[in-house]
């Protein structure tokens, strides 16, 4: 391959002829140029990325709470609950409050995650304060074996576990009265037990564990401050939504649903 052969004089060992100053200057200027490029593209795509994330989230929450008009993000920390800003801080639990058209709190949604058979299984669950129960789940991400592990989405009996799953808090408000437990198929007796799928026990348990871990963290922090969430100021949320829509409009990229179903999992 002639075009790759170096001229003969280069093959002969010679001390480096390039001064270090020139090397530093070249690398430095190339790096600076690259830095400018990255920052420019980052600023250009940022609104579209934020809008995309919001859209995916809202679609997930809507699937759980069909009559939700607006979704607001909050972080639950040991100190209380605060409206979410940016990426979740360490130790905080991100959750989403879904409101109907009149601004009344419909439900709370949050995400649980645990290691399954192949990879982490991430599940969005809906929590209703009145019944202190979980009323539905939606698998956000999973890579379990098709035909076996993905029954957590398709198996009607398994999904029915989460129609009314008891997550009442203990009187001291520090943990669940009964921790969620995934039990062998056919042996569910109590409202807080999850009937596993035969042959997909590991994945079933991952779902149960992921939700339990998340609920155990979230609810003790959420319950004392629940009344703060009950009613949503229309103006405030409207303004926020307006901003987001604006961002989406200014984004250079269309926001139509992609042909690929990441809900891949969910289809």
């Amino acid at each position: 391959m002639s075009d790759e052969k170096k001229p003969v004089k280069m093959v002969v060992m010679q001390p480096a002829v390039t001064g270090s100053g020139r090397m530093i200057a070249t690398l430095g200027s190339v790096t600076a140029l690259c830095g400018v490029l990255i920052v420019a593209v980052w600023q250009w795509t940022l609104p579209a990325i934020a809008a995309n994330k919001k859209l995916v989230l809202e679609r997930g929450v809507r699937a759980l709470v069909p009559d939700a008009e607006r979704v607001t993000e909050y972080d639950a920390t040991v100190g209380g609950i605060t409206p979410a800003k940016g990426d979740p801080v360490a130790g905080a639990v991100r959750f989403y409050a879904a409101y109907d058209g009149a601004g009344k709190l419909q439900a709370i949604a949050a995400e649980g995650a645990a290691r399954g058979y192949a990879d982490v299984v991430r599940v969005l669950y809906g929590y209703r304060p009145e019944c202190e129960c979980i009323f539905g789940i939606k698998v956000v991400q999973m890579k379990e074996t098709p035909g076996i592990g993905d029954k957590i989405i398709t198996d009607a009996a398994f999904v029915a576990n989460f129609d009314n799953l008891d997550v009442a808090l203990a009187p001291d408000m520090k943990s669940l009265f009964n921790a969620l437990k995934t039990v062998k198929h056919g042996s569910k007796k109590f409202g807080w037990e999850i009937d596993a799928i035969t042959g997909a026990t590991i994945t079933s348990k991952a779902v149960g564990r992921g939700i339990n871990d998340s609920v155990q963290m979230l609810l003790p922090r959420l319950r004392p401050h629940l009344e703060k969430l009950e009613k949503q100021e229309k103006g405030e949320e409207g303004r926020e939504k307006g901003q987001n829509l604006g961002a989406a409009l200014h984004s250079p990229f269309p926001l139509h649903p992609s042909p690929f179903s990441s809900q891949g999992a969910s289809s």
Binding site: I38, I49, N52, F253, S258
Partner: peptide, 17 residues
């Protein structure tokens, strides 16, 4: 890095996949 941002902006689903 640029491609990384652009894919996130075009399709989060593709980015996750």
């Amino acid at each position: 890095t640029l491609v990384d941002y652009i894919i996130q902006a075009v399709s989060l689903a593709l980015y996750d996949a």
